[in-house]
Amino acid sequence: MTIDWSAFTPLPSLLGGLLIGLAAVLFILLNGRIAGISGILGGLLRPRAGDIAWRLAFVAGILVAPLLWGLAGALPAITVDAGYPLLIAAGLLVGISTRYGAGCTSGHGVCGLSRLSPRSLVATLAFMASGFVTVYIIRHVLGG
């Protein structure tokens, strides 16, 4: 393993992580809800009375974040190397899998680990492992 020190951004990443953790904590403390993005989005596809608006408000907040950032300064780079067929395949897989797996990086990785949930620990280890293997295969076996 070689570490790419030129790409390593310890302070912004730690600060961003603290903000993400703070948001997750505020959501359970104020709204009594888990800040899991896949679950919040998925619930919009199973509409129940009184269960829609808060999801839309949360999603709107995320969507507005880059606009607010843009008022203060230049947005950080967002580089997407994947082509459209791969993006569609990845999106479909992430969508269906996070619903079966009952969470993603936020719901399991942040909230679940913070709650010391055994299910979330297993889920996080599983998606980290398959993420590592997938990138290994794409970059070092297929050489894409």
Partner: peptide, 24 residues
């Protein structure tokens, strides 16, 4: 839980997007 999470990781590794960052 296990198969879904494994599948999510594959999709995450294919493009580098998970749900929150995709919305951002």
């Amino acid at each position: 839980l296990v198969l879904g999470s494994l599948g999510f990781g594959i999709g995450w590794g294919l493009a580098g997007f998970c749900p929150g960052p995709a919305l951002v």
